[in-house]
């Protein structure tokens, strides 16, 4: 699913500049960053309510392709700057975690951690 589709489905606002044609193959929703690290994602979208700099470090380490902050949360400028430096697209949506995950799932974006 392209980031442009995610922006439109979640009515999300981009927080840095990125190529809307970037593709993610699956997604995870978590506020527990060690769970994200545990799951061995690749080319995934992360949906989270955590906005500190460790989200970006976790994305970098886990090969997370892009991050959506739920419930309209916005990280501080230093967090956005690090993401931009690492070429990690950031977006924010007013949808809740459950709603945002549900909308993307319903529209064909699978979970990245099916057991």
């Amino acid at each position: 699913m392209k980031l442009s589709d995610i922006i439109s489905l979640l009515n999300a606002e981009p927080l840095n500049q990125f190529d809307p044609d970037i593709d993610v193959v699956n997604a995870c929703g978590s506020d527990l960053l060690s769970d994200v690290l545990a799951a061995r994602y690749d080319k995934s979208l992360l949906l989270t309510g955590v906005t500190n700099i460790q989200v970006i470090r976790t994305a970098e380490i886990s090969d997370i392709k892009a991050v959506v902050f739920v419930r309209g949360k916005r990280p501080q400028d230093d967090v956005i700057s690090l993401a931009t430096k690492l070429s990690i697209p950031l977006m924010t949506t007013s949808n809740s975690m459950f709603a945002a995950c549900g909308i993307l799932y319903k529209n064909g974006l699978p979970p990245g951690d099916v057991q």
Partner: peptide, 15 residues
């Protein structure tokens, strides 16, 4: 609250 301290650190390392 920062997203850590979930008790998965050492288990993740072991895995």
């Amino acid at each position: 609250e920062m997203g850590f301290g979930g008790g998965m650190g050492l288990p993740n390392i072991r895995d």
